[in-house]
Design a protein around this nucleic acid. Structure first.
Lengths: 115, 115
DNA sequence: CAGGATCCTAAACGATACTG
DNA sequence: CAGTATCGTTTAGGATCCTG
């Protein structure tokens, strides 16, 4: 998901936040540190494998910090890095656009007066 | 690319702008009406089929207006709809983030002093 | 000029089972 | 608890050829 270099800054930003569960992970980690299991419970529809993958990618991109506590049973905490936090206003921008235009779903592309 | 309903506003926004060439199309159409061929020349690496697809999706999503001039040879113009223009600040947000953090490429996730 | 049709590949994601 | 390994499906996008 980031194999080739991104020349377009928009693409670069999208490369970091694109991923089926990344927006959710992002929102959930904003302001909070969470354990793997907590994320899993918050996102009941994602498999462990995929959740791990998405988190690994976010870690690779430097937006998420993974802290492993060497104990048994294992404990792993995830949090946003300072770098990751710089994405918060971007996510807000996306979010507010999505909220404002949520009345316009997939269809409804003809002039829909403010119903 | 928008088969299922998006519950998350961020996902909803991403669904509209995600697509390999959409950011470029977006930027290129911002403030200008362009013909299909112009877009193609501006994006030398995209095939006609894919360019058409992306434009169709953007039209479906209501962000792009496709105007066909019934003449031979055909002439088709693309422009941003008013709805599409509401995405400009969102694109700006993504873009400026991408620009600011462009020094941080795919790797380089350890502390890299401004070398 | 601006496409449509068809075939193909790579990558994302899911399902399921196993592990330190 | 927090993964990894393997397999299978879906889909975005590319390659190529055809058309009004």
């Amino acid at each position: 998901m980031g194999e080739e270099i991104r020349y377009c800054p928009v693409e670069k930003a999208l490369a970091v936040i694109s991923g089926k569960w990344k927006p959710y992970i992002f929102r959930y980690l904003t302001g909070q540190t969470k354990r793997f299991g907590e994320l899993q419970r918050a996102l009941p529809h994602v498999t462990r494998k995929t959740l791990t993958q998405q988190l690994r990618e976010m870690e690779e991109d430097g937006v998420v910090i993974r802290k492993v506590y060497p104990q048994v049973p294992p404990k792993v905490e995830y949090s946003l890095s300072d770098y990751g936090k710089t994405l918060i206003p971007v996510m807000s921008s996306l979010s507010s656009w999505g909220q404002v235009h949520s009345k316009r779903d997939n269809h409804a592309r003809d002039n829909q007066p403010d119903g």
